[in-house]
């Protein structure tokens, strides 16, 4: 069975990764307390995360993240929301050595040219402002090539 790994950077079922994985896929969450200890998370942070996953009403497993995903997926494809977090990226890279992994991004917040100068925020903002002030629907419509062209 395909798994959707709901990690701590995308604790939602209202995400394109859920659609991409299909109806048969099973969303799961891994509670990795050793990881939380490593990050030094206070009770407050752990509560917020746990309440957020409880509210999703999906199975919660506890254990080492990598070992749990390996065991639960049993070699079947794993889907995950994209994130820049190197910990999640490393996990997905390791999983990719043994099975298919699909990483799906959320709708872009802005549409800026590749190579935009991001050395300082306002250089970025000057490039990003026009699309940032558009609705997501309009950004996507703008990106779709017109049939007349």
């Amino acid at each position: 069975m395909r798994l959707i790994w709901i990690h701590e950077d995308a604790m939602t079922l209202d995400h394109p990764v859920v659609v991409a994985a299909g109806d048969e896929a099973k969303p799961i969450f891994i509670w990795d307390t050793v990881r939380h200890d490593h990050l030094g998370y206070s009770l407050k942070r752990r509560m917020f995360i746990y309440e957020s996953v409880l509210d999703l009403d999906i199975p919660i497993y506890a254990g080492d993240t990598y070992a749990s995903l390996m065991e639960l997926s049993a070699g079947q494809p794993i889907y995950a929301a994209d994130t820049p977090d190197p910990y999640v990226q490393d996990m997905l890279r390791r999983l990719r050595e043994t099975q298919e992994v699909f990483v799906i991004d959320a709708p872009a917040f802005v549409d800026i040219p590749e190579g935009t100068d991001t050395k300082r925020f306002f250089r970025f903002w000057n490039q990003a402002k026009a699309s940032a002030m558009m609705t997501t629907e309009d950004i996507q419509a703008n990106k779709t090539p017109s049939k007349d062209k």
Partner: peptide
């Protein structure tokens, strides 16, 4: 028994 190298399903869930 949550400290395990294997995935252990939580079968007791608190209500939100």
């Amino acid at each position: 028994s949550i400290i395990s190298s294997l995935a252990v399903k939580l079968i007791m869930r608190a209500r939100y």
